[in-house]
Simulated scan of single mutants.
Amino acid sequence: MKHTILNTVAAAALALSAGAASAADKVTYLFPAPDFLPAFAPFQLAKGKGYFEANGLDVTFQVGKGGADVATQVALGNAELGGGIGDTPIIVRANGLEIRGVALLGGRGLTQLAWREDAGISGPADLKGKSIGVLSFQDTTYYNLLGVLASVGLTKNDVDIQAVGPGGIIQLTIAGKLDAMSGVPEWIAAIEAAGVAMDQQPVDSVFPAMAQAIIASDKTIAEKPEVVQGFVDAVLQGVRDISADPKAAAEEYVKLVPQHSENLAGIEAIMRAYAELIYPEGENQPLGAFSEERIKAVQAFYVDNGLVRTAVPVDELYTNEFIK
């Protein structure tokens, strides 16, 4: 009898456990670039530390073919959520893709303007006649660079802009074939690790650039708000972990992403850069929230410079409803 009772209790426990597992909402998140990049550390920490699970989510990461592909797949419903930059909806919504930002990973801009110390550059005005690397001509690093140039009365015709990808930016800057770059903190760290002294300036000091963003379709927001809320909460907790203790976050991250296991010092430096340069909250802009004024200013620049064909209502580009 005793064994029967114990067996019944054990079976009930297993059933409850299985029920809890099946109750977790399955979510596909699409990265615009390889998911082992340090820029995506908040997502890896959220998964590795159980934040998604605690919010009732069973998250699968997949990698898309760049930002435009991610936006398309999310709009079509092939992924519940995806990654971009705060300005991604400005670019793609004008093309009929009904996606919007649901969380912004920091109050500062992701893109950094950096240059070799020996290039004779002290700021944006000195870029005239210089060679500058960007990821591609369809990428935010390029669009942000145009904004920087415009802030000092320059255009793309006044400089030599080269779209050479992340590896090309790093290698050509090390070789001295690029004077400057518009990119992310880890590219700068890689160049400096090779012994090249760099100077830098956050792009958002002269142009209203934005941080990474989590994007979702209007349909997912309407039909699965609890999924979006849980995902946003988990990733923002990952951001807070990095901001609170970059060293501890780096130690945890290299355990979760073994590609970086032999570069703890470098990862800690990158985490610290994100914590200091990108993640801080903006004025009247709590962590995760979008600024209507910033989005409006970026969209106006993109329209005026022919980067997008037409403006769309600003309130269709983002929502702050998932930011607590």
Rank of each mutant, 00 (worst) to 15 (best):
K324T: 04
R309K: 14
V59L: 12
V9N: 00
A275Q: 06
L287F: 10
G107A: 12
S122N: 15
F207T: 12
G176W: 08
G167I: 07
K49I: 01
Y142D: 03
Q212L: 12
I85P: 00
K224A: 13
N55M: 02
T8D: 01
F207A: 13
L287H: 09
G195Y: 10
T173G: 05
P185V: 06
D35I: 01
V102D: 07
W187D: 00
R108L: 03
G19T: 11
G176L: 09
G165W: 15
V308A: 06
F301W: 07
A41Y: 01
R116L: 04
D87G: 11
V196T: 13
L57E: 02
Q212Y: 00
G168S: 04
Y274E: 07
G48T: 08
L172D: 13
V27I: 11
K177A: 14
S291P: 00
G306F: 11
K130G: 13
K156H: 06
I191D: 06
D218A: 14
L57S: 08
D304C: 02
G67R: 11
E268L: 01
L105P: 00
L57H: 01
I215N: 09
G66I: 12
G282W: 09
S17W: 13
K2D: 04
G168Q: 05
S151M: 08
T220R: 14
V102G: 08
S131T: 15
A189L: 07
G230T: 10
Q62V: 13
A250C: 04
Q212N: 12
S205V: 02
A222G: 06
A75G: 02
I85Y: 03
Y51G: 02
Y142V: 02
G147I: 11
G106L: 11
L277N: 10
A13S: 07
H260R: 01
R116K: 03
P202M: 14
K255G: 15
L30A: 11
K26A: 15
R116M: 06
A71P: 04
Q112I: 15
S22N: 01
E268S: 02
K324G: 12
K47A: 14
A249D: 06
A273D: 15
Y279I: 03
R116G: 03
A21V: 12
G230D: 07
Q112N: 11
D158C: 09
F290Q: 05
M198D: 03
D158I: 09
A190S: 14
